[in-house]
């Protein structure tokens, strides 16, 4: 474990806590894409198949359980919880995310570290996470200005993978045979997708204005 990866995990945890806070405090999920939340739940469920077979550390197991439980709780909340469900922007959240699932699975079958069930699903989860934010960014663009908590949620979610990029650079130089190029290339794409959001987020912070993505 290095500081970059720990900071990345904490940033990821913060993004989830901010989203839970927004939904709980405002009893609303307006501006949040259910499709992105469903994709993230799928990412965690397919990435942590080794939850019960490979014990890495208490930290690793606990964090995996937190990520799986929170992502499922958010999807459940947005689908089932009466009050929250009514605030969902159903007509704006129309990204065909099943295409992302199909494309990432096809890619995972072709490009993986080893042609085994677990490795294919791991590669699938890595590719899917890279594009999982797309429905959320599209919804953001359509819904004009967003509330602060939603903006912060997306900011921390994007920042965590940027920290992971630093972690992979650090591990590449400090560990003899560290190579996780699938995660690394995917992480670069994932962080790149946030580029314009980061730009407008920075502008809104600098001008102390509401976050607005150009339509």
């Amino acid at each position: 474990m290095n500081i970059f990866r720990f900071a990345g995990d904490m940033t990821h945890l913060i993004s989830i806590l901010v989203l839970l806070l927004k939904i709980y405090a405002t009893k609303s999920c307006s501006g949040i894409s259910l499709k992105t939340q469903e994709l993230y739940a799928l990412v965690f469920l397919t990435r942590y198949l080794d939850l019960f077979t490979d014990f890495i550390s208490v930290y690793n197991t606990v964090m995996k359980l937190v990520f799986i439980a929170s992502s499922l709780a958010i999807v459940w909340c947005m689908r089932m919880h009466g009050l929250v469900k009514r605030s969902y922007d159903k007509e704006l959240d129309t990204f065909r995310h099943y295409l992302l699932v199909a494309g990432c699975f096809a890619l995972a079958v072709l490009v993986n570290e080893k042609f085994t069930f677990q490795e294919i699903f791991w590669a699938f989860s890595i590719y899917l996470e890279a594009v999982a934010i797309l429905p959320q960014l599209v919804l953001l663009q359509r819904s004009g200005n967003v509330d602060n908590l939603t903006g912060q949620y997306i900011f921390f979610l994007g920042a965590y993978r940027a920290l992971y990029l630093l972690n992979w650079i650090y591990r590449y130089f400090t560990e003899v045979r560290f190579s996780r190029w699938i995660a690394c290339v995917s992480g670069i794409v994932q962080t790149g997708l946030y580029a314009d959001f980061f730009y407008y987020y920075f502008l809104s912070w600098k001008n102390n204005a509401k976050l607005q993505l150009p339509a």
Binding site: D9, D54, N60, K114, Y164, S179, A183
Partner: peptide, 10 residues
Amino acid sequence: DANDVAKDEL
């Protein structure tokens, strides 16, 4: 080889 190492990252 390196790939056999369990995935230690989240």
